[in-house]
Simulated assay, not measured.
Amino acid sequence: MNINLKNFFAKYAIYFVLLCLIVFFAFNSNVFLTPTNLINVLRQTAVVGIVAVGMTFVILTGGIDLSIGGVIACSGVICSTLMINGVHPVLAVLVAIGFAAIVGIVNAFFSHEFKLNPMIVTLATLQILKGISYILTSGIPVYGFTEKFKVIGQGYIGIVPIPVIIMIAFFIIGFIILRFTSFGQSIYGIGGNEEAVRLTGINIRKVKYKVYVLCSVLSAIAGIVLLSRVNNAQPNAGFGYEMDVITGVVLGGVSMSGGEGKITGVFAGILVMAVLGNGMLMMGISEYYQWVVKGIVMLAAISYDKIIKKGR
Rank of each mutant, 00 (worst) to 15 (best):
N7L: 03
A13T: 09
Y15D: 03
Y15V: 08
F16L: 12
F16I: 14
L18V: 12
L19S: 13
C20L: 15
L21T: 05
I22E: 04
I22N: 05
V23C: 07
V23M: 08
F25W: 01
F27W: 09
F27S: 12
F27Q: 09
S29D: 06
N30S: 15
T34G: 12
P35T: 11
L38H: 15
N40E: 13
N40I: 06
L42R: 03
T45D: 05
V47P: 03
V48R: 04
G49R: 00
V53S: 03
V53P: 09
M55L: 15
F57R: 00
I59F: 02
I59W: 00
D65C: 03
G69K: 02
G69I: 02
C74E: 05
G76H: 00
M83K: 10
M83E: 07
I84Q: 14
G86T: 15
G86E: 13
H88D: 15
V90D: 13
A92G: 10
L94S: 09
G98P: 02
A100E: 03
S111I: 05
H112Y: 10
L116C: 10
N117G: 07
P118C: 10
A124T: 06
L126R: 05
I128R: 04
L129T: 08
K130C: 11
T137P: 09
T137A: 11
P141L: 05
Y143C: 07
F149K: 11
K150D: 12
I152G: 05
G153E: 05
G155C: 07
Y156M: 08
I157G: 10
G158Q: 08
P163W: 05
I168W: 06
I172V: 15
F175T: 02
R179D: 08
S182C: 07
S186R: 00
G189Q: 03
G192C: 06
E194T: 08
E194A: 10
T200Q: 05
I202C: 03
I202T: 06
N203V: 07
N203D: 09
I204Q: 05
I204V: 14
K206G: 05
Y209K: 11
K210T: 15
K210D: 10
Y212F: 13
I221Q: 04
V225H: 02
L226C: 09
P235F: 10
G238A: 09
G238Q: 14
Y241E: 11
V245M: 07
G248Q: 01
L251I: 14
S255Y: 02
M256W: 01
S257R: 10
G261T: 01
K262R: 12
I263G: 02
T264G: 06
L276V: 02
G277Q: 06
L281D: 09
M282C: 13
S286Q: 12
S286E: 10
Q290W: 04
W291G: 14
V292C: 07
V292R: 01
V292K: 05
V293N: 04
K294L: 04
G295V: 06
M298T: 13
L299E: 01
A301P: 01
A301L: 02
I308V: 15
K310I: 14
